[in-house]
Amino acid sequence: MSLLDVKNLRVEFPTRRGTLVALDDVSFSIAPGEILGVVGESGAGKSMTGAAIIGLLEPPGRIAGGEIRLDGKRIDNLPYEEMRRIRGRQIGAIFQDPLTTLNPLYTIGRQLAETMTTHLPIGPGEARERAIGWLELVGIPAARERIDSYPHEFSGGMRQRVVIALALCAEPRLIVADEPTTALDVSIQAQVIALLKSLAREKGTAMMLVTHDMGVIAETADRVAVMYAGRIVEIGPVREVVKHANHPYAQGLMGSIPPLDRRVDRLQQIDGAMPRLSAIPPGCAYNPRCPQAFDRCRVQRPELMPAGATDAACWLHAP
């Protein structure tokens, strides 16, 4: 039984030059305790998928089709207030910039405690004790002394830990993390990844991890969805997608990552650039850049279909 079910999600942006389809026919699910990585180039729609799930699409963007279910209950058509309660209690969000999540005017202890008393049946004293516990859990040294500090008194890495504690403290069942480590240095990034991973395992929290860093995904996720021009082009177990991708775009993406363990004369590259939303080609959106494209790819759009150990939206794998 999966916790999060996204089916045929479609997000549109009405503009004065016509409606842009930012996400089209996106379907996936996440089970409790599972980490789904979502990768792709900037503008592929990965962050927007996360925003649609937590109900924070930037206007004028709107969900134009499909459905999102949390534990079997539809959440894509809820009124704002109800969605806000779900966002605190059942879905936690972690963004790239910790400063957008933390209120600079309140101490972190107050922010943590308020989140907990709002969503959990506990009093202020209990909430404060638990807040200290959470800060210790996310690795803030001397949590008891620092709980009354303001966000600006923490360094970037520590702030991101506070944000994680804030997202976790109401014990949500799903966490949507959008580039949680991108703003951090590698040594801090490694600490945060390890933390997220162990928390998902211990608490059975489902997690959607959006990032452009394949290395982070490879180490953290159980399954990966690769997005291109607003659609999922391949989804499957992380090991398979990384080592034996079936979609030519996923193959190109993995191949273009510079290896750390050897020097190559020429990196594998994908020529050209991802199309703008206003100019997505007919057929498979990847066909103009695809070295293996054939006639069918230029006219007919492929759906996800079984390909080896993964699902890929590519006619090469048509039965």
Binding site: S155, G157, M158, D185, V186, S187, I188, Q189, A190, Q191, I193, A194, D213, M214, G215, V216, A218, E219, T220, V238, R239, V242, M254, I257, P259, L260, D261
Partner: peptide, 24 residues
């Protein structure tokens, strides 16, 4: 060495690491 150890790598799916502690 700590820097090299910290880099998430494609070949390391499911690897458990002991990252360097502290901050710059």
């Amino acid at each position: 060495r700590a820097l090299m150890e910290a880099i998430p790598d494609l070949g390391m799916t499911g690897r458990v690491r002991t990252p360097v502690g502290g901050e710059v």
